[in-house]
Simulated assay, not measured.
Amino acid sequence: MALVRAWGRTLGRWAGREDAAVVKDSGDPEVARIREAAEAGDWPTVRAVLEARPEAADRTELLWAVGDTAGVEQWMPRVLEAEPDTALPRVVAGIRYITFAWEARTGALAEHVSRDQFRVFHARLRDAERWLYEAAEREPGWASPWYGLQITGRGLEVGQTVARRRFEAVVRRSPQHRGAHQQQLQQVCQKWGGSHEEMHAFARDSAFGAPGGTLLGGLVPDAHIEQWLMLDRGADTAYMRTPEVLESLRRAADHSYRHPGFRQETGWLNTVNSFALAFSLAADQGAARECFELLAGRVTKSPWQYLNADRPADVYRKMRSAAGR
């Protein structure tokens, strides 16, 4: 973590080429459309965009675009009342209240969060759980309600057993649900009561248990970055440059974005950006350069914000330059 802070300060002052920028809405124009509709309180358009993206295609990014929009909680009660038997408004309300809950809690460490903030945080998460369960009852085949329940469960500290059941509920309905796998990776990491060993095992099993070309290959670099973040300065660099870490990254890349079955579908930019950072930290400049060439300047906020939360594109440019791209 000391290295993260130091690099953050250094890279915040760095000015590089201007042909790289954070991609808004992951390059999906429907995300921008649904966010604008949510800001305007236009439920018919929000509903139309969501219904046009089948559950099997993973609605995660669209749902978060609505959930991250301030003010949705003000007009959603009218929709819930008008459509008492419909699942979709309940999913949207549940996802919005997850973000609304974290807005009350803030991102501060637990010791700096007041009792009243925690009270509001937990109350909003319980509201979210109620709507998500109602949605699951109305549409038993949908994955989205259970995905939301993974996140509320972590905030309400339901424990590893219940959390695993909620994850399994998602993947029974959508086996390669990228968001659900990312949430479960967080659930089993050390900071949430798991361990490095469990986290890496989950990442490997998920990545290589899926068909070649899967976006789930990005769980492997995500897990290594997660452990790197937990280490002190010096130990973090040494860890990323071990032969075992490098070999696992290369195998995951071969099974993911290097595979002939890889498709540039929703979420692919996040996957390749994760590989780009991991290979850069592992000092495999050739593999990093390959990622940067594929990305062509398209930067996702994650994972670069770990080095500079305010200017993630600056970190991307610095790493790209080091890779000779």
Rank of each mutant, 00 (worst) to 15 (best):
K191H: 14
K191P: 03
W192K: 04
S195L: 08
S195K: 06
H196T: 10
E198G: 11
E198D: 13
E198F: 01
M199P: 06
M199N: 00
A201I: 01
A201W: 10
A203R: 02
A203F: 08
A203Q: 01
A203C: 13
A203T: 00
R204D: 14
R204C: 04
D205L: 10
S206G: 00
F208R: 09
F208M: 08
G209M: 11
A210W: 05
P211C: 07
P211M: 00
G212D: 08
G213S: 07
T214L: 01
T214G: 08
T214N: 07
L215T: 01
L215D: 02
L216Q: 05
G217K: 06
G217R: 03
G217C: 12
V220T: 10
P221V: 03
A223W: 01
A223Q: 04
A223S: 14
H224G: 03
H224Q: 14
H224C: 05
E226L: 03
Q227M: 12
Q227V: 14
Q227E: 13
M230H: 07
M230S: 10
L231C: 00
L231R: 14
L231I: 13
L231G: 08
D232C: 05
R233V: 11
G234S: 15
G234T: 13
A235L: 12
A235S: 11
A235H: 12
D236I: 05
D236E: 11
T237A: 15
A238V: 14
A238T: 15
Y239C: 06
Y239K: 05
Y239H: 12
M240K: 08
R241F: 07
R241Y: 09
P243V: 00
P243N: 09
P243G: 10
E244G: 06
V245Q: 08
L246Q: 15
E247R: 09
E247Q: 09
R250G: 10
A252V: 10
A252I: 13
A253K: 01
H255Y: 12
H255E: 04
Y257D: 09
Y257I: 04
Y257Q: 05
R258M: 10
H259M: 03
G261H: 05
G261A: 08
G261K: 07
F262D: 06
R263K: 10
R263T: 10
Q264V: 03
Q264W: 06
E265R: 11
E265I: 14
G267V: 11
G267S: 03
W268V: 01
W268Q: 01
L269E: 05
N270W: 00
T271C: 13
T271L: 12
T271Q: 10
T271E: 08
V272C: 00
N273S: 10
S274I: 00
S274K: 12
S274L: 07
S274Q: 14
F275G: 08
F275W: 06
F275N: 04
A276H: 03
L277S: 02
L277E: 11
L277P: 00
L277T: 11
L277R: 01
A278Q: 03
F279H: 07
S280Y: 08
S280R: 05
S280L: 02
L281M: 13
A282L: 03
A282E: 01
A283V: 06
D284M: 08
G286D: 13
G286I: 12
A287G: 09
A288Q: 01
A288V: 11
A288G: 14
R289Y: 07
R289T: 07
E290M: 12
E290D: 15
C291G: 02
C291S: 13
